[in-house]
C-alpha cells in the first residue's frame, strides 16, 4: 500500500480570503511576526500494488481532470508511506 498526499492551494496572485482572515486572527492573538497565511486542502490517496512511476502518472491525471481547478489552483504531491 502506498499513500500519496496531494496539497492543493490557490495559485499565487489569486486572492485567498480564508488565508487573509486566519492571518488577521493570528495578528490579533499577538503573533505579529507572521507575515502571511495561505490555506489549502489536503487529499490523501491510498494505492494498492502500484509502482511509484505509475502512481505519479495517475495522480497527475486525476489532478488535471478533477481534483484541481487550474484556473485558480496549484498542486503538489508527495509519497507519504509505502508498505508491503
Amino acid at each position: 500500500m502506498t499513500t500519496v498526499r496531494i496539497l492543493i492551494r490557490n495559485r499565487k496572485g489569486v486572492f485567498d480570503p480564508e488565508g487573509k482572515v486566519i492571518h488577521g486572527g493570528l495578528k490579533r492573538l499577538g503573533y505579529a511576526e507572521v507575515s502571511a497565511a495561505r490555506v489549502g486542502k489536503v487529499i490523501d490517496l491510498v494505492f494498492e500494488d502500484e509502482d511509484e512511476g505509475a502512481i505519479a502518472e495517475k495522480v497527475e491525471a486525476m489532478c488535471k481532470a478533477f481534483l484541481v481547478n487550474p484556473v485558480i489552483e496549484d498542486y503538489s504531491y508527495e509519497i507519504l508511506s509505502r508498505e508491503g
Binding site: N10, V14, F15, P17, E18, V21, N69, V71, I72
Partner: peptide
C-alpha cells in the same frame, strides 16, 4: 464553469 462550458472559476466570497 467547472465543466468548461464557460471560462473562469468561482471562489469564496471575500467576506467569507
Amino acid at each position: 464553469l467547472e465543466a468548461g462550458l464557460l471560462p473562469g472559476a468561482m471562489q469564496r466570497n471575500t467576506s467569507l
